[in-house]
Design a protein around this nucleic acid. Structure first.
Lengths: 196, 196
DNA sequence: CTTCATAGTTGCTACTCGAAATTAATTGTT
DNA sequence: AACAATTAATTTCGAGTAGCAACTATGAAG
C-alpha cells in the first residue's frame, strides 16, 4: 500500500542521537583557537597520505566545497599549523602538511574527549560500535556518491612488498608509485576497498 | 607508568566516524531553505513537551548559547515555520511551537535519509546501535554537565494516571502539573531518568 | 525595596558556506 | 606545434551563523 517502506522508529532515534552527540562534540571544539571546520581539516591532513593532502581531496572528505576548504586552509596556514608545498606531480596542485606546531596542537584534540567517552561507554563493544558506524557511513556515502577514504593498505590497488624503488617497500597499482610503511597506514582519497 | 590511560585506537576511530557521518548529514541539510542549526531547532520544537519549548531549553539541548538560539528561532519565525507565544508562567519567558507549515516541512526532514541509511546498514542491530549511541551520549553529557532531555514518561517525576485535573491523565511530580498523553511522550528539559 | 539571578535580545567580529568568476596547468585533437 | 577542453585551485562576494559580551526586562530573595 505504502509507496516506500516506513523508516523504523529506532533508526530515527539513532539518527537523532548521532546528531546530538556531534553537536556536543562540536561545542567542545572551540578550544585551541580553532573552530570545528579547522579541527577537521587539521586532523585530516595528519591522517592522509601524500596523495591526499590537497584542498580538493579535503573538500570531498568533508562533503563541502573547494571554496570553503580554501579559506579554512588559509586560516590554518596563517596560524602556522600547516604548510603549503607546490606539488611536483601537478603544477596546478598544492599539497599541505601539518607543521610541528600543528602536530603539537593535535595532541590536545578535543575529539579525544569524545573518543574517551566512547571507550568508557561502550567498553568491550567498542569494536562492534565502530563496525556499525562504518557500515552506516558506507551506506550514507553510497547514497551521496562519496568516496570511502579508507586506509591505503586495505585498498585493492595496494601491493605489499612490491618494491621497485628505494622510496618505499610497497606499491600502489593505481598511481604506479612506491609506498612507504607510513603512507600505507594512512587514509587515501583514491582508496577502494579490496573486493573481499 | 603513564599518567592517564591511553584511549583505545578503536574508540578514536569511532569518534572520527561519528564526525564524518555527521558532516555528511549536515551537507544534506541545506535543503528546504534551512541550514543544519535551523533543522535542529525545528526538530526539537516538534519533539519537546510544553515545558521545554523555550530558547533557554533549546540552547542547552544544542549545547550552544542563548544568543545563537535567539537568532535561529527568529529566522524560523520569519519563515513562518514556528510561532511565538508569551509564557503565562513567567513574563520573561517565551514559548515557541511549530506551525502547520513547520510540521509540513518536517515531513521532508533530511535526517530521515540518515535514518534510512542507519536502518539499511544496521538491519537487526539497529536497537543495539541506538543503545550504544545512547550510552555514549550519556557519558558525553555527564562530562559536560548536560541534561538528558529524555522522554517525559521515563522520568522519575512522572506519575502515571495520577490525574487531579482535566488537563491530562498523568502528573509531573517536579512541576506539579497535569500531563497529557502527548506531552508525556515528548522530550523534556527537566527529565531525569528513573532510578532503575 | 534593594540586590541578585534568570530569560531573552542585540551588537560586534570572525567565520562558514555556496556560487560564480579567475588563474593556471594538463590533456586531447587536429 | 597550436588550440580547445578539462581540471585544480583560488579569490571574491553575499547571506547567514557562531560565540562573546553588553543590555533590557522580569522574577525571586533578603
Amino acid at each position: 500500500m505504502k509507496p516506500k517502506a516506513a523508516i523504523e522508529p529506532v533508526a530515527t532515534e539513532a539518527a537523532h542521537l548521532v546528531d546530538r552527540l556531534e553537536r556536543l562534540a562540536r561545542a567542545g571544539e572551540q578550544s585551541g583557537g580553532l573552530n570545528p571546520a579547522q579541527w577537521d581539516a587539521l586532523r585530516y591532513l595528519a591522517r592522509a597520505n601524500r596523495f591526499s593532502r590537497t584542498p580538493a581531496a579535503l573538500a570531498e572528505y568533508l562533503a563541502t566545497t573547494r571554496g570553503t576548504v580554501s579559506r579554512t586552509l588559509a586560516s590554518l596556514e596563517e596560524k602556522g599549523l600547516i604548510a603549503r608545498l607546490a606539488s611536483d606531480r601537478d603544477g596546478r596542485s598544492v599539497d599541505f602538511d601539518t607543521t610541528k606546531a600543528g602536530r603539537a596542537l593535535l595532541a590536545e584534540d578535543p575529539l579525544a574527549q569524545i573518543a574517551a567517552d566512547i571507550a568508557q561507554a561502550t567498553q568491550n563493544d567498542a569494536r562492534l560500535f565502530a563496525d556499525l558506524l562504518q557500515r552506516v557511513l558506507r551506506a550514507a556515502l553510497a547514497r551521496n556518491q562519496g568516496r570511502a577514504f579508507g586506509i591505503c593498505r586495505t585498498c585493492r590497488h595496494f601491493r605489499r612488498d612490491a618494491a621497485n624503488g628505494a622510496q618505499g617497500p610497497h606499491h600502489c597499482g593505481l598511481l604506479d608509485v612506491p609506498l612507504s610503511d607510513a603512507d600505507s597506514a594512512r587514509i587515501c582519497a583514491e582508496q577502494s576497498p579490496a573486493a573481499a
